[in-house]
Design a protein around this nucleic acid. Structure first.
Length: 511
RNA sequence: GGUCCGUUCGUCUAGGGGUUAGGACACCAGAUUUUCAUUCUGGUAACACGGGUUCGAUUCCCGUACGGACUACCA
């Protein structure tokens, strides 16, 4: 079997879309599964759309999610350079060869002439107003001009492109790994530009030439490429590379969560979830977008989630490490239908992975948040907080955001809880509890608990009846982790102070 | 418009000529938890439609509908 060599070939026109990450992931999984190579090639043949920083972003993003590049931009390799703009001189000879072999031709038409042609065809009621086997005979190209005229134009440096001479009647067949045989008639394909007038190849030429030169065995890419895949097959044939043609696998698209249509940044913004792996600031517009990383997603959770968007192992196992994904992966099990993007599932994965982290790691997350807030906290305390919060967080930042009461006394109290649970009995208990607590010697959770129970017993009030009021006085909220542990963490003075404040503050409300 | 691709619970999906159509997320209910969350148990919920083929079709075939992609000297 041929060595598996796959490539991820993004265009540096902005931040890497999450769908792109999934494409890269599937490529990577296949490469690793078969002990093959994963390449990264930058497809920057459109100089107009180049966005500074995009390439670095792509490299960083792949690195963050754990997709390792064996060969390509950023790491080098035997087929360098891996940036198509730097490979510019290599493409022309293949285009020229196609011309020499009668499979391509020079075209000198101006933009206006092209526009006029389309207009004319449209008015004539043509199904598709394009440059093809019929219309090309009315245009200015090396098929209609004499050899001498063509030479003269070329010598004069008249701007021109090289177009593929697509056969008039030919059934083009393509065996896609995911979709099976796809048949397209050549009459449906237009004479695509192969070399642009600026001397750069178009995607179609560059992609085929590079995949051949880099010995790519499988082309795994988004479904948006399926319509032009037959064109690529034609190119392999005309270039005499049929034997080395890679296998194709066109991935189903990622769709927006509600309604229909391709997932876009707009949808993500509207629904408040990220669409890029990392934070991104558009250098042209200055527009900022939050990344999955910054939103608190763990890379292994994101990878697991992404892997399941369009693929499944055929078992009921849901949680997979990268290595397990590699072992279980197969292109055959990739689905055909588009996949709606459900951020809930991503959150669930994140929660699962976060729980899987050691308390030491989690404490580190919390301490990082605290440092940002300018709060000092020793490791022991952080460990305690993390231990009691672990089962209730989705994101690392939740330790801080949902646990602020560990560091700040509440200044406001949840109205609905106060109105329901704050009453004379509660206040009675709190007053006495506060006094008792102050007499304790560095109390732990159990001592707080014992004290509270003793007080309620003495007053003949059920602990359950007033516990939420106690919680309210300490945290300002009606829910949260083990209250006794909270008290242990903040200490008896703080407990006493908060109770006093709460009694004072809530007095008016109740009266 | 044309070409191509697709269609199983709300979502991701398993399955596949005869099944109580399975799982996960979400949702709902009960239990546990002194609260909330967790956890556990249970529940609601799907084969787009119409024709064939067949003893039998959700599964195979053909249409229709719906959705998507593509239709640039962009990738």
């Amino acid at each position: 079997m041929r060595e598996v060599r796959v490539r991820f070939a993004p265009s540096p026109t902005g931040a890497l879309h999450i769908g792109g990450v999934r494409t890269a992931l599937y490529n990577y999984l296949l490469a690793r599964k078969h002990g093959g190579k994963m390449l990264l090639r930058i497809e920057d043949t459109d100089q107009n759309r180049y966005v500074p920083g995009a390439e670095e972003y792509i490299v960083q993003a792949l690195k963050w999610v754990g997709i390792e590049i064996d060969e390509g931009q950023g790491v080098g390799g035997p087929h360098a350079p891996y940036r198509q703009s730097e490979r510019k001189p290599m493409y022309k000879q293949y285009a020229e060869k196609l011309v020499a072999d009668g499979h391509a031709y020079y075209a000198f038409d101006t933009e206006e002439e092209l526009e006029a042609m389309r207009e004319r065809l449209k008015n004539a009621g043509a199904a598709l107003p394009q440059y093809n086997s019929i219309s090309r005979m009315q245009m200015r190209n090396s098929l209609t001009l004499t050899e001498g005229e063509v030479k003269a134009l070329l010598n004069d440096g008249v701007p021109h492109v090289i177009r593929l001479k697509v056969p008039r009647k030919e059934e083009i067949r393509l065996n896609d790994l995911i979709r099976g045989w796809v048949m397209v008639h050549s009459s449906q394909i237009d004479d695509k530009v192969l070399m642009k007038s600026d001397g750069m190849p178009t995607y179609h030429l560059a992609n085929v030439v590079d995949d051949y030169l880099m010995k790519i065995s499988h082309v795994i890419r988004g479904e948006e490429w399926l319509p032009s895949a037959p064109l690529h097959v034609l190119l392999y044939k005309f270039l005499g590379w049929e034997e080395d043609m890679p296998q194709f696998a066109h991935l189903p698209l990622l769709l927006k969560p509600t309604g229909d249509g391709k997932l876009s940044k707009r949808d993500a913004d509207q629904m408040g979830f990220p669409i890029f792996p990392l934070d991104w600031v558009d250098p042209n517009t200055g527009e900022k977008a939050m990344g999955f990383r910054e939103a608190g997603y763990l890379p292994d959770a994101l990878v697991n989630f992404l892997a399941f968007l369009g693929w499944n192992p055929g078992t009921t196992q849901e949680l997979f490490t990268m290595q397990e994904l590699i072992d279980a992966f197969s292109v055959e099990r990739i689905g055909k239908a588009g996949t709606k993007f459900d951020i809930h599932k991503a959150q669930w994965f994140n929660q699962q992975y976060l729980r899987g982290r050691s308390n030491d790691d989690l404490a580190a997350y919390l301490m990082a948040s605290l440092t940002q807030e300018g709060i000092k906290c020793d490791r022991e305390k952080a460990l305690k907080i993390v231990g009691v919060m672990k089962e209730r967080v989705v994101f690392p930042k939740d330790f801080w955001e949902q646990g602020k009461f560990f560091f700040y006394a509440p200044t406001t109290f949840d109205e609905s809880v106060a109105s329901k649970k704050w009453n004379e009995d509660a206040v009675k208990v709190l007053v006495k509890f506060r006094e008792s607590v102050l007499t304790l010697e560095s109390p732990d959770a159990n001592m707080f608990k014992a004290t509270l129970e003793r007080v309620t017993q003495e007053l003949g009030i059920g602990t359950g009846k007033i516990l939420q009021a106690v919680r309210l006085s300490i945290t300002g909220m009606g829910g949260g982790p083990d209250l006794m542990v909270i008290m242990e963490v903040i200490g008896k003075e703080e407990v006493a102070a908060r109770i006093a404040y709460a009694i004072e503050h809530l007095k008016l409300k109740v009266a």
